[in-house]
Design a protein around this nucleic acid. Structure first.
Length: 1149
RNA sequence: GCGCACGUAGCUCAGUUGGUUAGAGCGCGUCGCUGAUAACGACGAGGUCCGUGGUUCGAAUCCACGCGUGCGCACCA
């Protein structure tokens, strides 16, 4: 039943056909169906932004997201996997704008919102298909056909429902705040978005004179990096408790006021002396009036007095105030306040205003329009973009003698995360907020329930982020997003939230639905989901319940798309209109995983929304999660960033080459670089190239097995390629080996069994007449099965705690053991002539079963390789599950773990390794037989067992005799060391002396004492110490002058003396090797018989061949070997045999 | 500036509650095997565990300070 399989398989091709098989046979669906009664394992797909092509980093995320659901499914859980796509938001709009060659909101309006939205929807679809391709090719099993899509009506309605809930509870409010404003895009951004855009820039840094009104020769000095805010100045802030100095600036000739402690530093900065004339506290400066740096507003408004609540008159602005946030860390200790452009500044304005009677306090001065340009209130700079105004404003200050000092200041400044060239500005704006700050403690508590991997994320990065929570700036003055479902009465301004489209259309006096109907008539292709979007939804109005004759109209904003993604736990089901049961059964998630950049993205949005919405507090929606604030995910693997790797010329002129390209164009004159992946630099290769060259399993294995998932991962083609032989190829070769001999010998395996086959467990296999109980098989068989069973248990234990990296190490080790010890040591058993010998059949059954178990074990990790193995191993069998992914995960119950056997086998392998090391040292090749090996052990307890297995070592090392000993040996010196772990706590400070005493004594003598009395008596510093066998560790050292090698537990010494017999045998083995080589060159079948003619002038070689004629003939399937002293031969090969030239002719019969 | 993480072989990384010979893979070198053969295997070289100080009988591991890298935060005026 088994066909020989080649070792030169092309994995990518094989994977493609397996993909087809999965599709044809609906394996994924069936893997799910057959677990439908199982305990749920809930997985949430964090929706990838359907914008831009997937890059290698996404492959890591998707590979990890695939691994654990596959594993849990095989373990019997029901793991529903619903795909999802994040489709809204700025990224999409920006992409479409690029395509259309437009940028501003005016241009979008001019193009037409309706057409623009349609384009956004199309753009999203295009990318979703690309993503689906990569998802499938990687072997990421997820239900793409049922994917949730954030722009779908059902999704939008879920979001609406949640927003209505928040609105009705007073948690969604409209506020006038200073927001981070993207002027070109005409919208505010959330703190999350702002944080993504910080970049280092050099801004002008100016120190400006604010002359005091009553003493124009004395000026406050303020410092700012945003000169464009100076025309909007309203106050100068000091700290009451800081001391300020009046300094004479000898060169400029005037008096300046700065923080006293900064005089020296500033004097140094301007490189001229400042003479302190007097010092006052900040308190004394408060209330002093100054001339504002520009008079655009003063000339217009004047500076009339307002009326304080105490009844006194008070000038409104352009005076010194106190502010807590003023420090002497930088600047001058006096801060210019432009409340329109700074959150803290704005708060000062509000608290100043509150001192006045209603309507008499300071207003807000704002010289900038929402487009980021100066308004007509400031004619000098009207129409100028803020950043462009910095220079002329600085110049104007200088001309009017107000510029005290100027320099460059390098700092981080936020830019739009989607339009890199656009700096953000703080700007006063009406905006919608969610009162997340009311849930700060709840979110923190929730966070403590989450199993973070790595665990420091919880208290660290994520916890810190929650601690500094601010209200969520939710609204966006954009187009492609979930519309904010708030309708406002156009006469009273009263508002209400709407939870669904049906609710809206059943409002009294509803109008405007025809806008959608008409659009749909005009273009029947239009997706129905668009009707809940702009501009159609904006057209829908209804009668105001608050004022007769008035209409309710929707506010114009859409919402932050991060809210969409965070709503996914319920919105994916359309809850509560639809999918109520599913939502309750699938909340919270057992497992999610994304990269670390989602800390304040999806991780936060999910947590915030769930905390506010679900639980058992008033107004919240109860779920099955049994806690006051349910966390939306129980375990989260936070993945590291993926780094790119490339090659470049030494001068850096040619960059981002592959290794091959570098070699081709630059010879060896190139350097290797690693760094952040960047779309713009295109410093990485498409994952498709890896799939095509090496296959998805190669990438998956590389990602899983080379580092913990949270450390940053190098996306290196070379490293991916190099990781293939050590695991995938090695496993494949073992499999190939098996099939070659199984075919030759006609091993029938489970096809002996008539019925009752399903997953090919050991119980099922045991029905085969030739399958013997493991206990009856050879030790080697028992060992590998025991090791395999231990591996199963270890992998399960690790995977259950999300340690995929550790599980891979375990898998790697078992494949290594199978290939490099089990198969290696068993080879001769497969060659045995008697096809029905129980030992030979045992060997087949053991290897066969091991391969079956391994194919199941690796199935979640490298699903293609697993499937290929399974399909080959089970081909032609009736009733067996047709895919490995339909099987149960092996739990190791098929064999007991024999720890002693494992230890002994390790020891055996170590001895073999040491022997080879000694041979190497003595320059004696393994082919040359040696007479005797002495193995000296530190621990005598395994000697008997080892002696019983000396055939293995004899064969591995090609020696005639082997001798084990643990006592005194001429080849070994002993050093006795204390067992630190044991003795440390017991003798403490005496330990160094104890160590010294043991080192000085004769090791052999100490051991002698130990064997005789079972203990060693010592006196250290007058104190007597008694050591038992556990208290000491014996170290062996090979004495010099011997061909010997030492390891942790043994010394292996070779007798290097070569007798004539040994030499002859060595020559014979050499001859065999040469003849085998020729057989291969002639492309002989394994079974071809040959005749050999040898011509050799060296008598000793002829003798050797004569002596071992039978042996050589047997090994090489030669029917006759003819040896001559001399003579000419046709078609002969000349080779070196034992350093002597020899002619050999091979005749194939 | 503050916070988090990291710093171990040429490279990528492991290193359990502190235990005295610091590991793996790749790469490199030397070699073996030649019935897994366009495969397989062995052996070897290579380390100031970032630095300094401390705690301890004992530190890659714990503590402090510094240096470097990455990421995050923001009252960066």
């Amino acid at each position: 039943m088994f066909r020989a399989v080649k070792t030169d398989v092309r994995f990518p091709d094989q994977e493609e056909s397996i993909l087809q098989f999965w599709k044809d046979r609906q394996i994924y669906d069936r893997s799910l169906q057959q677990r439908s009664g199982g305990q749920p394992f809930v997985f949430y797909e964090g929706p990838p932004t359907a914008n831009g092509l997937p890059h290698p980093g996404h492959c890591l995320t998707r590979a990890i997201k695939d691994l654990f659901p596959r594993y849990r499914t095989m373990r019997g859980f029901w793991c529903n996997r619903k795909a999802g796509w994040d489709t809204h938001g700025l990224p999409v709009e920006v992409e479409v704008c690029k395509e259309l060659g437009i940028h501003s909101k005016e241009e979008i309006e001019a193009y037409g919102v309706e057409k623009f939205i349609a384009k956004c929807q199309h753009s999203v679809w295009r990318y979703m298909q690309e993503w689906e391709r990569v998802t499938e090719r990687l072997g990421f099993w997820i239900d793409l056909s049922q994917a949730y899509v954030t722009y779908h009506q059902s999704y939008v309605e879920s979001v609406w429902w949640s927003l209505k809930n928040l609105f009705d509870r007073g948690l969604l409010y409209r506020g006038h705040k200073i927001v981070w404003w993207w002027a070109q895009g005409g919208t505010a951004l959330s703190s999350g978005e702002v944080g993504q855009g910080y970049r280092e820039v050099a801004d002008p840094s100016v120190y400006v004179r604010f002359p005091l009104l009553d003493d124009p020769a004395t000026s406050l000095i303020i410092w700012t990096t945003t000169p464009w805010t100076l025309p909007s100045n309203q106050f100068a802030a000091v700290h009451s408790d800081i001391d300020y100095a009046y300094c004479r600036d000898s060169e400029a000739g005037d008096v300046i006021i700065i923080a006293a402690s900064l005089v020296e530093a500033l004097s140094e900065k301007i490189k001229r002396p400042l003479t302190v004339e007097r010092t006052v506290s900040g308190r004394e400066l408060v209330g002093k009036r100054y001339t504002p740096p520009f008079d655009f507003y003063e000339s217009k408004l004047g500076n009339p007095n307002g009326k304080l609540r105490s009844g006194e008159p008070m000038v409104r602005q352009w005076r010194v105030v106190h502010a807590d946030f003023v420090t002497i860390d930088s600047g001058t200790g006096i801060v210019h306040l432009a409340p329109a452009f700074g959150e803290a500044d704005y708060e000062v304005l509000i608290s100043e205003r509150e001192r006045f009677e209603e309507g008499t306090g300071p207003g807000l001065i704002c010289a900038i329009g929402p487009d980021g340009k100066f308004t007509d209130e400031v004619p000098d700079y009207q129409g100028m973009w803020v950043k462009e105004a910095d220079r002329p404003i600085t110049r104007a200050l200088r001309e009017r003698g107000k510029l005290w000092h100027q320099e460059q200041y390098v700092h981080d400044y936020p830019f739009c995360w989607r339009a890199n060239e656009d700096p953000l500005i703080q700007y006063p704006r009406e905006s919608w907020f969610i009162r997340t700050t009311a849930f700060r403690e709840a979110m923190l508590e929730n966070n403590r329930q989450i199993g973070w991997l790595p665990d420091h994320i919880g208290p660290g990065r994520f916890g810190n982020f929650l601690e500094s929570n601010v209200d969520w700036a939710l609204s966006r003055e954009r187009y492609w997003g979930t519309p904010l479902p708030i309708w406002v009465c156009d006469s009273t301004g009263k508002m209400e939230a709407v939870a669904s489209y049906d609710e809206l259309t059943s409002k009294p006096g509803v109008q405007g639905l025809d806008v959608w109907t008409q659009a749909k008539l005009a273009d029947p292709e239009l997706a129905d989901d668009l009707k809940v979007h702009k501009p159609y939804i904006d057209a829908v109005t209804y009668d105001s319940p608050y004022a007769k004759g008035s209409r309710m109209r929707r506010v114009s904003e859409v919402i932050d798309c991060w809210y969409d993604s965070g709503a996914m736990p319920f919105a994916q089901w359309g809850y509560p209109l639809r999918g109520s049961d599913l939502f309750k059964a699938q909340f919270p998630a057992d497992f999610i995983s994304e990269a670390i950049d989602q800390t304040r993205g999806w991780f936060y949005s999910q947590l915030a929304i769930s905390t506010m919405l679900f639980g058992n507090k008033p107004g919240q929606v109860a779920t099955q999660a049994d806690m006051p604030y349910p966390h939306p995910f129980k375990n989260c693997i936070v993945l590291g960033l993926m780094l790119a790797e490339w090659y470049e010329s030494k001068d850096g002129k040619q960059r981002f080459l592959t290794e091959e390209e570098a070699r081709a164009t630059l010879g060896s004159d190139f350097v290797h670089k690693t760094g952040k992946m960047s779309k713009q630099l295109r410093n990485y290769r498409s994952p498709q190239e890896i799939f095509d060259r090496y296959g998805a399993d190669a990438l998956r294995w590389y990602l899983f097995a080379n580092q913990a998932p949270w450390s940053s991962i190098l996306y290196s083609e070379r490293a991916i390629r190099d990781s293939i032989p050590e695991f995938l190829l090695r496993l494949w070769n073992v499999f190939s080996f098996f099939t070659i001999y199984a075919e030759i010998d006609g091993f029938r395996g489970p096809s002996e069994i008539r019925s009752g086959l399903d997953q090919l467990t050991s119980e099922e296999l045991a029905q085969a007449p030739t399958y013997r109980p493991v206990a009856q098989r050879s030790e080697l068989d028992r060992w590998i099965l025991s090791d395999l069973a231990a591996t199963c248990r270890d992998v399960i234990e690790r995977m259950d705690r999300y340690d995929s990296y550790g599980a891979c190490q375990s898998l790697h080790a078992i494949v290594d053991a199978l290939s490099n010890w089990y198969v290696r040591r068993s080879r001769s058993r497969y060659w045995a002539a008697d096809k029905s010998s129980p030992d030979k059949l045992d060997a087949y059954w053991t290897l066969y079963e091991s391969m079956l178990v391994i194919s199941k074990l690796i199935a979640p990790f490298t699903p293609f390789m697993a499937e290929a193995l399974w399909r080959h191993l089970t081909s032609g069998l009736e009733g067996v599950r047709e895919s490995v992914h339909l099987c149960d995960y092996p739990d190791g119950s098929f064999a007991q773990t024999d720890a002693i056997l494992n230890t002994r086998m390790d020891l055996l392998r170590e001895i073999a390794s040491l022997g080879r090391s000694a041979r190497m040292e003595a320059k004696l090749k393994v082919r040359q037989p040696l007479g005797r090996v002495e193995v000296t052990l530190a621990d005598s307890s395994h000697i008997t067992w080892l002696s019983e297995h000396d055939d293995i070592v004899r064969e591995e090392l090609n020696v005639k005799e082997i001798h084990y000993a643990s006592g005194a040996s001429p080849y070994v010196s002993y050093a006795v060391q204390p067992n630190f772990r044991r003795l440390g706590p017991r003798v403490g400070p005496l330990l160094p002396k104890l160590k010294q005493t043991l080192a000085n004594a004769s090791g052999a003598q100490l051991m002698e004492e130990m064997t005789q009395h079972g203990k060693i008596q010592l006196t250290i510093d007058g104190k007597s110490v008694e050591l038992d066998g556990e208290d000491i560790q014996v170290r062996l050292t090979a004495k010099s002058g011997w061909a010997a090698a030492q390891g942790k537990s043994a010394v292996v010494a070779l007798h290097t003396e070569l007798t004539p017999e040994l030499i002859q045998e060595g020559i014979a083995k050499d001859a065999i090797r040469i003849i085998q080589d020729l057989r291969k060159k002639r492309q002989c079948e394994f079974t071809n018989r040959i005749e050999v003619h040898i011509v050799c002038g060296d008598a000793s070689i002829r003798d050797a061949i004569e002596t071992h004629r039978e042996f050589i003939a047997g090994e090489t399937l030669a029917v006759a070997i003819h040896v001559q002293n001399n003579g000419e031969m046709l078609d002969a090969d000349t080779v070196e045999l034992a350093d002597v030239p020899v002619s050999i002719r091979l005749t194939v019969q």
